[in-house]
């Protein structure tokens, strides 16, 4: 059991506002990072992050002390992102998101490698995308990601390498490769 996590949860359950503030401050970057990468839209990500924390506080009494808090919160966040994406797929893509996609089509207009990768990530399958983000942004192990996504570790490894292959192929298509190729030789 993680004593720090347990103590913080107890304080939150007691209604200690400062403990709740500390709780949000502690995890908001991770949760926002996953949501922002998954949704590709800042405002949507902020909305989902707030929803994640509200849900987490409501079900904090159900938290298993044998489980660390961060993966538990990331599980909630991954589920909320999945739900949000399934809802969004049934309605028009927000104009801001569409504009981002349109701009990113042109390599000349957008040279930033990070944004290129983010655009490529947004084209991945949802489960591949979640896996890639949790591995490369949250630096979680394949075992931890498997626990969060409720999949075997082997499946997570497969998803990770497929997503990496797809992203590399996408960046090659966009002409990101030459500099790297030059370095590798």
């Amino acid at each position: 059991m993680n004593e720090d996590d347990a103590a913080q949860v107890r304080s939150c359950l007691d209604g200690n506002t400062e403990a709740m503030r500390a709780f949000v401050a502690r995890f908001q970057s991770s949760i926002f990072g996953l949501c922002y990468r998954m949704l590709g839209h800042r405002q949507d990500a902020e909305d989902v992050v707030q929803e994640v924390f509200v849900r987490a506080f409501r079900s904090l009494h159900q938290w298993d002390p044998n489980r660390t808090l961060k993966p538990w919160l990331l599980t909630i966040a991954a589920n909320r992102c999945r739900t949000f994406l399934s809802k969004r797929s049934r309605r028009p893509v927000p104009s801001e998101f569409a504009a981002d996609l349109a701009v990113s089509q042109s390599v000349e207009e957008l040279q930033d490698l990070g944004e290129e990768l983010q655009n490529a990530i947004s084209m991945l399958r949802d489960d591949h995308r979640t896996c890639f983000i949790l591995f490369h942004q949250e630096n979680l192990s394949c075992q931890e990601i498997g626990d969060i996504l409720e999949r075997p570790e082997g499946t997570i490894k497969t998803w990770l390498h497929r997503s990496r292959q797809e992203l590399a192929a996408n960046l090659r298509q966009r002409g990101i490769v030459p500099e790297v190729r030059h370095e590798s030789r």
Partner: peptide, 14 residues
């Protein structure tokens, strides 16, 4: 190498 170069740049965009 492509991803080794791109991922750190991507991590900075958060």
């Amino acid at each position: 190498l492509i991803l080794e170069t791109a991922v750190p740049a991507w991590q900075q965009t958060l």
